[in-house]
């Protein structure tokens, strides 16, 4: 069964006309969750990665609150990256869609469809639009600074200078 997905901007968390490419100067738009960062182009945490990581604390393993983490105080950039529709199709198979919706909401996008768009085919024109948007959301939308908080143990993990860090203090190991 195909899910009907409303068109365009619902996947877009932040669209800046001058997308980041490594040659351009960083965007200067600044809102609550969106500011440019000087190290933005070293490497960034892609939105998609939020779907693969949970709290690292072992006692949180069995808790449903350890995934996804809660994202707060995030600075987001959008980096223009090569569009690879197969990649998006393959990734969709792996995604926990509820977590995608939840994290997008953390980052200020309330408009994602509640059901995972499935059976997308890169050949179909209608699907292309959705795949492009998913590319923008999953791959091009990136967090350069922010906090990831476990809803179970409340430990805070940081995304620092574009790098998510899951190292634990001794008492949580």
């Amino acid at each position: 069964m195909r899910t009907a997905v409303p068109a365009v901007p619902q996947y877009i968390i932040w669209r800046d006309e001058r997308k980041i490419s490594n040659r351009n100067t960083p965007p200067t738009t600044q809102t609550q969750t969106q500011i440019a960062h000087k190290k933005y182009n070293t490497r960034n945490m892609k939105f998609i990665t939020t779907n693969f990581v949970k709290c690292a604390v072992k006692t949180c393993d069995s808790s449903v609150d350890a995934f996804p983490l809660q994202y707060s105080d995030c600075q987001i950039v959008q980096e223009e990256l090569e569009y690879n529709p197969e990649f998006i199709v393959h990734m969709l198979e792996r995604l926990e869609w509820n977590a995608v919706v939840k994290v997008a909401r953390d980052l200020g996008n309330e408009s994602l469809p509640p059901v995972k768009p499935e059976g997308l085919d890169p050949i179909m024109e209608d699907d292309q639009v959705i795949l492009r948007d998913l590319h923008t959301l999953l791959v091009e939308t990136q967090i350069v600074e922010g906090k990831m908080v476990c809803r179970n143990c409340e430990h805070i993990y940081f995304i620092k200078n574009s790098i998510p860090n899951f190292l634990l203090p001794p008492h949580l190991c």
Partner: peptide, 18 residues
């Protein structure tokens, strides 16, 4: 366009979802 991501993690305190 194939690269997913990389991050800092101690393998023995693993943050990849179960």
């Amino acid at each position: 366009s194939q690269f997913i991501d990389s991050f800092v993690m101690d393998f023995t305190n693993n943050a990849l979802r179960n």
